[in-house]
Design a protein around this nucleic acid. Structure first.
Lengths: 198, 198, 198, 198
DNA sequence: GATGAATGAGGCTTCATTCAT
DNA sequence: TATGAATGAAGCCTCATTCAT
């Protein structure tokens, strides 16, 4: 017998659910999924512990919705960018635009990204969600860029290009390595990607 | 008053400690740190739960030793490779050798790598250990390759090259993306790195 | 990050907390602090083990509240007696009144008294609480009796008088020594104290 | 089937057993019985954990022997004093001698005394041992002093006199109350006791 | 006799989830 | 819907005791 989970329709309910998701997002990003308990989430969301289970099946269900939120915030803009790509731009301009977008997106979400990635390990289902997302980005890029007539657009090339972008963005956001100069790094990344498709 | 932790010297003790580390390694890799409990570790190691705390301060202490083990298995060969590099090799040969090594190393340790990376999130101390290791690899590569007279050896170039290698290896090991052809991917990676230092 | 401990305000919460304290009081008195485990306390209080930690930081925290309870039951009446002393009474009447009060108080709390005293040994903080309490009794007695114009009221005299009272009460309550006649003992104690302040 | 416990006869065995008792004595006095574990005792005694169970049935058995040790150190001198009492001494001299002895004995054993007293609570058997000891002291005093022709020697008088002595000694040893002057306290105690038997 | 590694029951505490109000 | 008190299974860790060497 499946527990009754509210599908909130009233404005107030929707807000309550949102508050919980936001709280989960914040805490998972800050402390990790396993080090966050539902009481903390409820407190952060300023709701009672009980009501959490009125909107979510269980703790993992909160995680799933946090992931959805993450997707909305991070992947939707990417898909949007892909969909709105027009041939008019030069390759270099395109690469730089993507780098800019990636940088901005990551700045706001690097912690949750890392944590979600971490949880993927322990949870196959979530892991699959992430792999699927990356697949989609890759394949939609490939499709669109081919349509626009770019050369040498292969799955492998796009995949690597994306990894290079991620490497760069990662550095910018985490600032882990003092011996790395971001400007130089970006220059190299742009050139590498440019050379890949030349 | 600090608990007494055995520093094993006898053969039997060393073996017991090793069994526990191995069990931790296996289970952390398989299920993650947070989803592994001490009873499972003890059972996997075929020892009692109590003795675990004869050799380790606490559960996290097991993790630390697992990390050391990981370092020994993964990073030592890398440092070894770096130290033994000789000019005689062509750049291409060098790149391919490194790819081969990375591939082999990763094959045996990709799960634990991912998990340890994941735990880094929740634990600053461990996170630092990993950043430090990557730093060492990068900087030692830079130093050695400069000594050998290679051109365009910069921190940024090496850093990116390593990321490319990791991207490739990651694909090979996890086999997540059916639309990626490893052979092609490798070819591209080799060419990209080659072009970086030309 | 401090665990959230309920400060009970609702009637139900207050009752639950009280049930736990009462259970602790009973079991610590009966079996001692170290031989009582939290499961027993929860069972005796007819609550779940978990909720205990909703009201108390840890097991020792229960002990502290039990001590507070003990203080309320034992020391508050003593302080009350001191505060309400009036000169009208003869010395002998006063001594006898105090003996009566002490005897009654001790009858209900001798076991917990002994146990709390015992724990004082292992725990400095608790030990200090007890020494402080005795100090207060002594010094407040001294102050009040001086105010009332009694003679030869010194710290030392009062201290010893209290010890004599305790010796007597102890005998009455524990009935350890068959060769002691309580009536005679009381008579001697009264006379001794009387002679101290004559 | 009773476990085989060595009754040590060889010199070396006797020493080993003694080392363990001494270690127990020291640690029980310092940290209390329940906060001392057998590993600590073994370490303090510089023997292996295993051998402890060659000489003692269990942990409580160590406690029993520690108590015997305590008795030897504290009560034997008292019994000795009683046995050697001669009429020649004046009452005051006698009281002062006893106070001196009690003070010296307590100085070396106040911690263990308190702890053993504490354990008595949790363990009836041990509690009985202590009550018996006090009984013996009381009754032997009574008997001897009567033999020597002292007046007003009753069980109750002696019992109280001993309690007064203990009160004084306790103060001297623990120094808990800053507002108590030992010299004055002693004077009062001596006078009180003197008056009891006058 | 002696060692110290090993055992495993049991204690303290946490926390996802439920339920009375 | 909402609250937050209550539940109880499960996790981490300790330690008296045993056992292989």
């Amino acid at each position: 017998m499946q527990k009754e989970i509210r599908q909130p329709v009233q404005q107030r309910s929707i807000e309550t659910k949102r508050k919980i998701i936001t709280a989960g997002y914040f805490l998972f990003a800050k402390n990790g999924f396993f080090k966050t308990n539902t009481a903390q989430i409820a407190k952060q969301a300023q709701v009672s512990t009980g009501i959490v289970y009125g909107y979510f099946q269980d703790k993992k269900d909160i995680l799933k919705e946090v992931i959805n939120e993450y997707i909305t915030q991070v992947y939707d803009p990417i898909f949007n960018l892909i969909d709105n790509l027009g041939k008019k731009e030069s390759s270099l301009k395109l690469i730089n635009d993507i780098l800019d977008l990636a940088e901005n997106l990551h700045k706001d979400s690097c912690d949750i990204h890392r944590e979600l990635n971490a949880v993927s390990q322990a949870d196959e289902e979530i892991g699959k969600t992430f792999v699927d997302l990356q697949d989609q980005v890759t394949l939609r890029f490939v499709k669109k860029l081919e349509e626009l007539g770019y050369k040498k657009i292969t799955n492998e090339n796009i995949h690597l290009a994306m990894n290079l972008i991620e490497s760069y963005v990662h550095e910018v956001v985490y600032d882990n390595h003092s011996y790395i100069n971001y400007k130089k790094l970006r220059e190299i990344v742009v050139n590498l990607i440019y050379s890949m498709f030349k």
